[in-house]
């Protein structure tokens, strides 16, 4: 099976994720979209590793997983705290930090 197909799939998944980040208001959905983009990137790394026959892409994919896990912990904690104080998970309402 041609490895380039995986790259195309990664691009499709990344676009869907980016679209989700831009258009959805619910913080959880936005978060899920971010995860999707990360995993699309992982897929691209692994596919690239397969094409070039080296391990670099695979190693990077592991790094991304670790960072993503850490990010989930912090991000979910923030979202929960915001939800508790504002009774809403809409990211448009959490817009106090501005000029």
């Amino acid at each position: 099976m041609n490895a380039n197909n995986y790259l195309v799939l990664a691009a499709i998944l990344f676009t869907i994720g980016a679209f989700g980040v831009l258009v959805r208001r619910n913080a959880i959905i936005v978060f899920m979209s971010v995860e999707m983009m990360l995993n699309a990137a992982n897929l691209a790394f692994v596919a690239a590793a397969r094409i070039t026959g080296t391990l670099d892409g695979q190693v990077t994919a592991f790094f991304v997983m670790v960072v993503a896990a850490a990010e989930v912990v912090v991000g979910l904690a923030i979202i929960l705290t915001i939800f508790r104080t504002r009774k809403s998970a809409s990211i448009d309402e959490a817009s106090l930090l501005k000029y």
């Binding site: 980040v21 258009v23 208001r25 936005v30 448009d92 959490a94 817009s95 106090l96 501005k98 000029y99």
Partner: peptide
């Protein structure tokens, strides 16, 4: 310039993309 600092996360995301 400061009017671009709207506080809306999605707007920042759009700038990044």
């Amino acid at each position: 310039v400061r009017s671009t600092q709207s506080g809306y996360t999605r707007s920042y995301a759009l700038f990044i993309f």
